[in-house]
Amino acid sequence: MDTKSLMIHTATALFQQKGYKTVGLNEILKACNVTKGALYHHFPNGKEELLIACLNGLKETITAEIETIIRGHKSTKEATQAILDKLIYNLETEGTITGYTFSSIVSEMATVSEPVRRACSALYENIQHIYAAKLVTDGFSSESASDLALMLTASIEGAMMLCLTQKSTDPLKTIAKRLPHLFE
Rank of each mutant, 00 (worst) to 15 (best):
E49D: 07
H129R: 15
Y131C: 01
C120N: 11
I105V: 15
D138F: 05
R118Q: 15
H73P: 06
Q128V: 08
L172P: 01
L58R: 02
L91T: 03
M109E: 15
N56E: 13
C163Y: 01
Q17M: 10
D138K: 11
S146C: 08
A119Q: 09
T98E: 14
L58H: 01
E92N: 13
I28F: 00
A119E: 08
Q128I: 00
S142F: 11
K36W: 11
G37C: 08
N56C: 08
P171G: 03
G158F: 03
E49W: 02
A79G: 07
A119W: 02
A79K: 09
E143Y: 07
H41D: 13
N90Q: 15
I97G: 13
L152N: 08
D2C: 09
H181L: 14
F102D: 09
K86Y: 10
T165N: 09
T93Y: 04
E114D: 11
N126K: 10
I97T: 13
G46S: 05
V116W: 07
N26M: 13
I62K: 09
K134I: 03
I97S: 13
T76W: 05
M7I: 08
K167R: 14
A122C: 06
R71D: 15
M151A: 06
A122M: 11
E27R: 08
T101F: 04
E65H: 02
N45R: 15
K86L: 15
T12H: 06
T174N: 14
N90E: 14
L91A: 06
N126Q: 09
G24W: 13
P180A: 13
H9K: 12
E65I: 00
Y131W: 15
L123D: 02
R71C: 14
H129T: 13
E60V: 04
A79E: 08
K36N: 13
L150Q: 06
D170I: 15
V106C: 07
Q17T: 12
A110R: 14
Y20R: 01
T80Y: 08
Y131H: 13
E125Q: 13
T68S: 06
K74L: 12
M160L: 08
G158N: 06
I62G: 03
P171T: 05
G46Q: 07
E125H: 04
E108K: 05
L55K: 03
A53K: 05
E114F: 10
L162T: 07
S113N: 05
K177W: 05
K47A: 05
K59C: 04
L179E: 00
